[in-house]
Amino acid sequence: MDKNLNALSDEELIAELQQTGNERAFEILVQRYKNPLTNYVFRFLGDFDACMDVVQETMIKFYRYKDNYSSVAKFSTWIYTIAGNLARTEYRRRKRRSFLSINDYGEDHKVFDIPDESYRPDVMTDSGIKDELIQKALLKVKEAFREVVILRDIEGMSYEEIAEITGLNEGTVKSRINRGRAKLQELLKDIYKE
C-alpha cells in the first residue's frame, strides 16, 4: 500500500487524502516538500527558527485546507503559495519588531545572526564564508525581488510557476527577477572579483 502511494504523483496523493482521508498520503507529501520549503523559506527569512515555524504552519494549513485544493493547479504551486504568503507575513512582522530587537532585517540594515547549534544551516554556512555572504546579500535585496530570485535561481522554478505562486504576470516576474539579480550581483561583486 505504501509502495503504491510513494509511486503516486503529488496531485494523486492529495486526491487520495481528500477522498479517503488517508494520513499516509499526507505524510508522503510532507516528506517530499519539507526540505524544498525549508530551503525556500530560510533563504527568504534568514532565520532558521522562524523558517521552521513557517514551514510547520504551511503543513498545518495544507492539512487543514486540503479540501480547498483543486486539481486545476499543480500541488507544488499551491503549497509554495501558502509558504510564500506565510513567509512574507512573518518577514513583515519581524521587520516591525526589529525596532526593538537585536536582529535587524531589511534591505539596508545589517543582520546579526546569533549562532546556536552546529547542525543548523545558518551555522553551517559559517564553514563557507561565501554562503554566508550570499545569504546576507539576499536579505539586503528587496522582498519582492528576493522572493522571485529565490524561486527562480535557487528553487529552479519556471516563470509560469513563479507567476502562479506570486500572483503576478509573467512579465512582471521576469522584470523583478532581473532587478533582483542586478542588485544581488552588485552586492556580491567582491566575491566575483576574487
Partner: peptide
C-alpha cells in the same frame, strides 16, 4: 547573470531537522 545563477544554485541546501514530522 550566469555566474550569479551558478553561485545561487550552488548554495548549500537547507534541510528540515529530523524531528520535523514529530513536531
Amino acid at each position: 547573470y550566469d555566474d550569479l545563477i551558478k553561485t545561487l544554485k550552488g548554495l548549500q541546501q537547507v534541510k528540515a531537522p529530523p524531528n520535523f514530522e514529530a513536531d
